[in-house]
Design a binder for these strands. Structure first.
Lengths: 338, 338
DNA sequence: CCCGGCGATTTAGACGATTCAACTCGGGTC
DNA sequence: GACCCGAGTTGAATCGTCTAAATCGCCGGG
């Protein structure tokens, strides 16, 4: 009654289960006439392979876990896109998990993925030094960090976030801004910390720059707008003239906050975001942003994982680092005379 | 070397595999002292249950597939949230799949889920009459339609989209608008068709209303903005004075389009969206929207599925329909004198 | 006529967790 | 002392698929 198994397919086709299995995995070695009979039987019964059984027998799973911080952020879905594209070529499935920047949810997903004995895990971790990650690896599940640089024995794919921070900072400073807000969070997240370190470094090198730091719990549109309204309420003489936001959702919210408060962008407030998601470009005031090659990140991460899985023993962990680009658009395109 | 199995745990603890299994599934019947030994052994070896084996043996999987049209749309992530919450209570895992409004991707995901013998599938289908869905059910995978009403033998959870369309239309007409644009797509998608039918019906009942229809391929921010700019370019005397958009992402993009073209909302163009996602409220001009209880939809869908799985034979399919609410905010709050 | 060889197919275990009937062992009952 | 009871534990069978080794049938060469 349930789904038919290979056995019933065999019976109906008048062959042994081995032959059906051969048909499925090495059709070349099955005689053409037999092949047809098996094919018909599969069709007639509506046979569907049982992945759990394959997996158990093979000891190897064909699914990869991808744990991201926020599925609603197009940056991560682009990344997932890249990972899935390569997975598809390797006849592999991606299981998308949303940690929502919450370590508890993240842990829960990791447990589930490990129980499923996934082939490997690609993760944008909340905390890349979490011992759970290395424990996972020790127990045999390959892990590749995404959008985060691994220090110890892990593969990782990331973008030079410090450089990204420098690019943004340099651009704003060169445009004449001397009172700049950095907005992101939590500051403990490595990406955020690096972006901050980048702009901090260049601010200090320049000297005479007042860099203010605002921390948020989650980097979403709603939070960005709240901070925007908060800054807009400051008196003009002490208010920053520019803001660098650690991701584009935050920046879009911030931009809305400006609009509501009646501040003009970029005249009253210049804005630079991060990620260069599609609709940053489409915003009411097109958003300047530090571009990360999201799809390439995902693709490369999957590549490293496949490599690690295939070459097992003789695999050496690698840390791939891409360079970000600053894309200047209207939101920061205004020269301020000092 | 690989992950240890129940057998090795048993060996180390000096008990049989049966006892270890009992420890895992019915700890109550294991003697306290034995329980401790097994516990220690598990700890020491770092044993992790093999889900594939459990699944194979049980014949029942503990994961549910959730296929949505667009993971970047907060409406769907809220929905997923609701589904996951209930799943969690049932010790069940949700596998999130993004079809991106693409029937090919959707089909691929369905195939994969079926091979994994998932417990069931919750899906916002591209086309709810797709025979593949009923074929899936015939072969034994329970399916619950989400945000779509099932006509034939399926459970479904949806919101009365025609009513939603009527509410929006009625509101705009009562506010004095007589040239109104409906924007959404593809029109073949049932939700979109129903929302359109709703506003069309009330426009006809009222008479003297010029309802114009604009179709898009995908309902995202980028598309909304494009249509917005297109309408803004029309001469004021033929341009609609109000727009009803079939989801909020579209509406947000449309709003941006207005801002760019210098049209004022709601004075020059009133806007009503659909879904009432969080950041519709936070938009530059807070967006009027037809609210759907996203989380409740997800939760209820999962409930129906659990019910179907548990009561097997004597299960009768049900179609649950919720009522939408119109939330009026600034984007449409302007009385137009006729 | 026998044998080697080859292509096609079958057979017989695994894989890891679960379940259930069977068993052990003390202790209590008559 | 025979018997039973129940708590605790054991061991074997099972789920569906895959693979390596074994088998079968058949042909041609010697």
């Amino acid at each position: 009654m349930g789904t038919p198994s290979i056995k019933e397919v065999a019976q109906r086709a008048g062959v042994s289960v081995g032959t059906v299995s051969n048909f499925l995995n090495r059709p070349g070695i099955v005689a053409p006439e037999t092949r047809q009979r098996v094919q018909d039987s599969i069709q007639a019964l509506g046979f569907v392979r049982n992945e759990a059984a394959r997996h158990l027998r093979a000891g190897k799973s064909r699914t990869v876990g991808l744990v991201v911080l926020d599925v609603t952020n197009p940056f991560f879905t682009d990344l997932a896109e890249g990972a899935e594209a390569l997975a598809y070529e390797h006849d592999t499935v991606v299981m998308l998990c949303n940690s929502k920047t919450d370590p508890v949810r993240e842990g829960h997903h990791l447990d589930q993925l490990e129980q499923q004995r996934v082939m490997g895990i690609l993760i944008t971790p909340f905390d890349s030094t979490d011992p759970r990650l290395t424990a996972l690896v020790d127990r045999g599940t390959p892990v590749v960090l995404v959008d985060r640089t691994a220090d110890r024995g892990l593969c990782s794919v990331s973008v030079d976030d410090q450089l990204g921070g420098r690019l943004a900072g340099n651009h704003l400073i060169e445009s004449g801004h001397r009172r700049i807000a950095f907005i992101g969070g939590p500051f403990t997240m490595q990406q955020v910390a690096d972006r901050r370190a980048g702009i901090t470094a260049i601010a200090e090198e320049t000297g005479d720059v007042d860099l203010q730091h605002y921390e948020v719990d989650v980097m979403g549109v709603v939070e960005g707008r709240a901070i925007g309204e908060q800054l807009a309420a400051l008196p003009a003489r002490s208010r920053p003239t520019a803001a660098f936001l650690a991701n584009d959702l935050l920046a879009l919210g911030f931009l809305q906050g400006m609009a509501v408060a009646g501040l003009r962008v970029p005249r009253d407030m210049a804005i630079v975001g991060y990620d260069d998601i599609d609709f940053a470009r489409a915003a009411a005031v097109p958003l300047s942003s530090v571009r990360q090659p999201a799809e390439l990140l995902g693709r490369t991460a999957m590549e490293l994982l496949q490599e690690e899985v295939e070459s097992a023993e003789r695999h050496r962990h690698r840390q791939v680092i891409f360079q970000p680009d600053l894309i200047v658009r209207e939101s920061s395109d205004f020269k301020r005379r000092r």
